[in-house]
Design a protein around this nucleic acid. Structure first.
Lengths: 209, 209
DNA sequence: GTCTATAGCCTGATAGAC
DNA sequence: GTCTATCAGGCTATAGAC
């Protein structure tokens, strides 16, 4: 409090979290030792424990910081027009790009594996990730409904279906490390296909008459 | 070879695999010690190591046995008729029932977590699980195409979309332990909604004329 | 705050009696 | 094949010098 830490070290806590993140995400929780984190962060174990009282607290702190950064950037500014196909395709592209990023894939693996032992972790992940995406898409579908551009009986269910179509075999293969990350062209193709099916299946009563 | 093992012990290897399966599936790989497996199986650690040379080999052996039993039962006998909606709904129900079973959820968590360190495990899982389901649904969609009941341009993509719609928010919440397992009624609702959207979005040129 | 050194525990795996 | 007893090593976390 009284004396600020040395000016050169820009928050050693963040430095540790960053190193811990790299290791946890690439190796998993159990396979990552506090020794290796300390070495990767360039500090001693004692220093590490001065900042984070336990391995689990460090892990949770790291996960929270990652989520905040990722989600803040990825869910805010998207202008969606009145055309259902173009709008949903745009939503789909961004959702897929986020879903298929190396960090997101690793984080998902990690959270899933540890959610058994850390229920709060799973809940925080769900609320800050999938739940928010779902709300956003639900709101957009409701908007399209009101404009008469779509007729979706249950917008929340529809949003869930639409996002599910995107999180498909490709996502599974990437999660398992069986396929390379999709290119922008791949993503565009998938997003458009999902938007096409969703729009065709939820067209308002008179498509063109 | 010469002398068969004592008649009372009906394959001690299977007994060990069963105990290991329970523990691995409920706690994860790293959190399950060989001591606890030996205790749960009612044998000593030395006996355990006589049957499986290492923890990793025991793990892989257990996973393979589980998959074989699960998939053989769950993918074989399903009569699908010519009505796209009813047929797809039936496929969806069975897919969801399998996907949401406690064992499948636990196995998925486990495979995902360990696939980084054991790439072969992930590949075996994908081939024996998702890949086969996908092939089955693709074949059914092609059949419906030929009968003129649907017009799906890319059957493999369509199958992927259909299955993705089912593997949605509910699956995620169950994976994270945030929601109770769905009832048969929940499953039926989801399966029918997915079938409805898929049929409506892939109707042949003249729906009713 | 930061380091070196170490405590205390639990792990996977083995040696030897029977 | 099966057990009891134990090894050697890695882990998290801490104590004490500076």
């Amino acid at each position: 409090m009284a004396a600020k830490s040395s000016k050169a070290s820009i928050s050693k806590g963040s430095q540790i979290r960053a190193a811990a993140g790299r290791l946890f995400l690439s190796q998993g929780y159990a396979a990552t030792s506090m020794d290796s984190i300390a070495a990767a962060a360039g500090v001693s174990k004692a220093t590490l424990y001065a900042h984070f009282r336990s391995k689990q607290l460090l892990f949770e702190s790291m996960v929270q910081e990652r989520f905040r950064a990722e989600m803040e950037e990825n869910l805010k500014p998207l202008q969606l027009g009145d055309d259902p196909f173009e709008g949903l395709a745009a939503v789909g592209r961004r959702f897929l790009a986020m879903l298929m990023s190396p960090d997101a894939l690793a984080a998902f693996r990690l959270v899933l594996a540890e959610s058994v032992r850390l229920p709060e972790l799973g809940e925080a992940f769900y609320r800050s990730g999938p739940a928010r995406t779902l709300e956003m898409v639900t709101a957009y579908i409701e908007y399209l409904n009101e404009r008469g551009r779509l007729k979706v009986e249950d917008p929340a269910l529809g949003a869930d279906q639409f996002l599910g179509m995107l999180k498909n075999k490709g996502h599974m293969k990437c999660l398992l490390g069986l396929a390379p990350l999709p290119s922008a062209a791949d993503i565009d193709l998938l997003a458009r296909a999902a938007a096409r099916l969703f729009v065709a299946g939820n067209a308002p009563a008179r498509p063109k008459l």
